[in-house]
Design a protein around this nucleic acid. Structure first.
Lengths: 226, 226
DNA sequence: AGACGATGTGACGAAATTGTCACTACCTGA
DNA sequence: TCAGGTAGTGACAATTTCGTCACATCGTCT
């Protein structure tokens, strides 16, 4: 279920948006006030933000910039009164990804949000190439070089590495790894995960004993940090 | 079991509400008088408040504001006579979350309370990041920084911290903590809770000896205050 | 069939986490 | 002020979790 944040002061519009998006299966958080909006943003970490440019307290434009500077990959959809003199260039400068002028139809707004979320999911899911340290990996070619040298990875190792790269910084439990990397049918032991982490570390870490990238989160799982 | 506070002077309505909510599994506290309501509120720390706007003593509107200013995340459901000239906007300004006009059906009221509580539980359970003082915590990354420094927390400490952040200002008994944080199967001593509070304080409080955020409520439990 | 690489498993010491206890300090009501 | 309960604190032991290794298994290629 995708989480979105609505920053809007008009109670009637709030209700309308909540109804529209909740019935479309979104998880809606609302901030009525520019002053608390950033806080709400940080605590909910939404997938997308709908922002009314006309706000009491902090200006919508500032908010836009602030959100973008903090989390560049969260799309922002701006609501603006038709009377507002707005040009697309300004909006793009602010970091907004799309805009809708009031009065708008909920249907249209919903369509735009869906489009934005779809783009996001597509873009984020399939890293084809990546590099960190002196490591360069290309999933299309299934090749990994370290300091220019080709390092052979097994298929399982590639899968696992890819999953980690697609979920950087996030702590991932062994169970989730088994589900996502091994698939739902196979049920190896959680011990197996450790062994594979070990192998990835030995191949990719400068000091496999004291790993920087493939970190252990005791009692919980592992996470990849660039 | 969710605790709710009913602020209502009419004895007949009191009885009706008590019957309705107790048989629905709620824990009901009642204040008949605006004057003592705040006191009752503070001592019971309910999950939700049902407030009759027409009260002897202190005005219902003032109460509404006062409760909200003290505990912003406790939903307030307002009861009002149909004859009252009520503006929805005014209510929202007061901080009320919903309202029902008399005469109301118990069934409807119950439904609204349940909806509010559900929203609360849903919304609150998903805090992914939060900050207070010079502390910043991110539950997705399982990282906590204090004054920019990484402070390692154990899984149990993360769980506990999260529960406290999700239930700010509310007094939580040791038993409830054991149930919610440790789960229903494990039954460590209530003393165990104290030890973990100690550890959180040592890691997060400026002066662990004189804690500001993780407060002791003697004879009852603990509460987190921002 | 034999060889080889890839993968999964169990064992075991090491490390981290967590629960408990004992003791002290504190609070509260008589 | 005293007694009795309640909470803070540090040390310690029990338990859980992790890293690592050797080895079994499996499939594939020759």
């Amino acid at each position: 279920m995708e989480k979105i944040l609505v920053i809007e002061d008009d109670a009637a519009v709030q209700r309308a948006l909540r109804r529209t998006f909740e019935s479309a299966g979104f998880d809606v958080a609302i901030a009525s006030d520019g002053a608390v909006a950033m806080e709400t943003f940080r605590s909910t970490m939404p997938r997308l933000v709908i922002l009314d440019l006309r706000l009491p307290g902090k200006s919508g434009q500032d908010l836009c910039r602030e959100i973008k500077s903090e989390c560049a990959n969260v799309p922002i959809l701006v609501l603006s009164a038709a009377s507002d003199v707005l040009d697309k260039v300004l909006l793009l400068e602010l970091g907004a990804d799309d805009y809708v002028t009031k009065p708008f139809s909920p249907r249209e707004l919903l369509a735009r949000v869906r489009a934005a979320v779809r783009r996001l999911n597509q873009a984020s899911d399939k890293i084809e190439a990546f590099s960190f340290d002196d490591v360069e990996v290309n999933f299309t070619k299934m090749e990994l070089h370290r300091a220019g040298q080709l390092v052979p990875l097994t298929p399982q190792e590639f899968k696992m590495l890819r999953f980690f790269l697609n979920n950087q910084d996030r702590v991932i439990s062994r169970t989730e790894l088994l589900n996502e990397v091994w698939g739902y049918n196979n049920y190896p032991t959680t011990r197996t995960v450790d062994t594979h982490i070990l192998r990835l570390r030995q191949k990719l870490e400068k000091d496999p004993t004291d790993p920087i990238h493939f970190r252990t989160v005791h009692g919980t799982g592992y996470k990849f940090v660039r």
